[in-house]
């Protein structure tokens, strides 16, 4: 690295004002305690044992709304009840074109949020690569300024987790199954057989179109039925676009192609064509019932169901669009 490079890098960091950057993982509710023990129960406090490596193996810390900071594994003298953010110090945005490195970062980010969930109950997770300027003081000020929204959000998700449901179709509904219940289609069949070549071609086209439309209608009914039965079981039901909004670029053409972890989660091949996707916010208790319901859906021919979780409630965070004229993000707080 030449002096020129070094100067450029420093300038770049200064440009983006990240010399006092804090990479944000999640916001957690802190219970009041003395010397790492909870006042009420005497049980060892969460803060004392929170020690996990973050993105790029950075050590993580907890910063409170008063700007106090505890590094990982450190036992504070006392903890005031309030809110805190899990952070690490950073100077630049995490940016890499290598999907393997990106995946590694994502998993490391997720591990921190998982650990926070285990220690502090359900946290409010940040998007990957969200960095606040202004050091611990900046984090504290932001927590303080948004404390009302954050507390409300923490209360809303307390004891709940996000789960993802994808219903896919691996095989089309058999033609016979539709025709036997459809007089119109049933009537078309002998007409096609009897017609001249040209007319038969047109009728056949009409037949195929109707068949497609009936298939779509069946799937719509399946989805509507599932939604109707799912909704009362969960705290919040959020329908998603049928396809994931984000996927990784195909890495097969990169130099180290062939490694097993290059699979980018292409759902179409394994789980069929998605016909609906949901993010649900639900309690642990509700999950057995949701599972039974999904079981009954998955029993149908040509249908697969993918049921993942528990995840931190990424899809159920409040929006913080202070000074933006962008359209609001698709987020929802029940």
């Amino acid at each position: 690295m030449t002096d020129e490079d070094r100067r450029t890098t420093t300038t770049a960091a200064a440009d983006h004002g990240l010399d006092e950057g804090r990479y944000l993982y999640c916001v957690v509710a802190l219970r009041g305690s003395d010397a790492g023990r909870e006042r009420d129960t005497g049980r060892e406090h969460d803060v004392a044992s929170f020690d996990v490596a973050g993105v790029d193996d950075e050590p993580v810390s907890i910063v409170t709304s008063t700007g106090e900071r505890w590094d990982g594994g450190q036992t504070p003298e006392s903890v005031e009840a309030g809110i805190g953010a899990i952070v690490h110090d950073c100077e630049e945005l995490y940016d890499a074109a290598d999907p393997r490195l990106l995946k590694r970062w994502l998993v490391q980010h997720q591990r921190v949020v998982d650990e926070a969930t285990a220690q502090f109950d359900t946290p409010i997770p940040f998007q990957f690569d969200t960095i606040l300027r202004g050091g611990d003081g900046g984090v504290g000020s932001w927590l303080e300024a948004e404390s009302e929204t954050l507390r409300r959000a923490l209360d809303t998700v307390a004891g709940l987790c996000e789960y993802r449901i994808v219903v896919g179709r691996t095989e089309p509904i058999p033609t016979a199954a539709i025709v036997t219940e459809d007089d119109e289609l049933a009537a078309l069949e002998p007409r096609i057989d009897a017609a001249s070549e040209g007319t038969a071609h047109l009728l056949k086209k009409q037949y195929e179109q109707q068949l497609d439309s009936r298939r779509r209608e069946r799937d719509r009914q399946l989805v509507a039925g599932l939604e109707e039965r799912l909704e009362p079981l969960v705290a919040t039901l959020q329908p998603l676009d049928r396809r994931p909004s984000v996927s990784l670029a195909d890495v097969s053409s990169t130099t180290e192609a062939g490694s097993e972890d290059d699979a980018t989660g292409d759902e179409v091949t394994d789980d069929g064509e998605p016909i609906c996707r949901y993010a649900v916010l639900a309690s642990d208790d509700a999950i057995d019932e949701v599972g039974s319901l999904l079981d009954s859906v998955a029993d149908r021919d040509g249908i697969t169901v993918r049921f993942t979780g528990p995840w931190p409630p990424y899809s159920f965070v409040p929006a913080f669009d202070e000074d933006s004229d962008e359209p609001p993000r698709q987020t929802e707080v029940p």
Binding site: H16, L106, P125, Q127, T130, L132, G134, T308, E322, E326
Partner: peptide, 20 residues
């Protein structure tokens, strides 16, 4: 697939000058 979408498209975003 879920991790990608959750972490890259969901979660808190701070749309303000104080954040990147």
């Amino acid at each position: 697939a879920d991790v990608l979408e959750l972490l890259l498209d969901k979660g808190i975003v701070i749309n303000a000058d104080i954040a990147v």
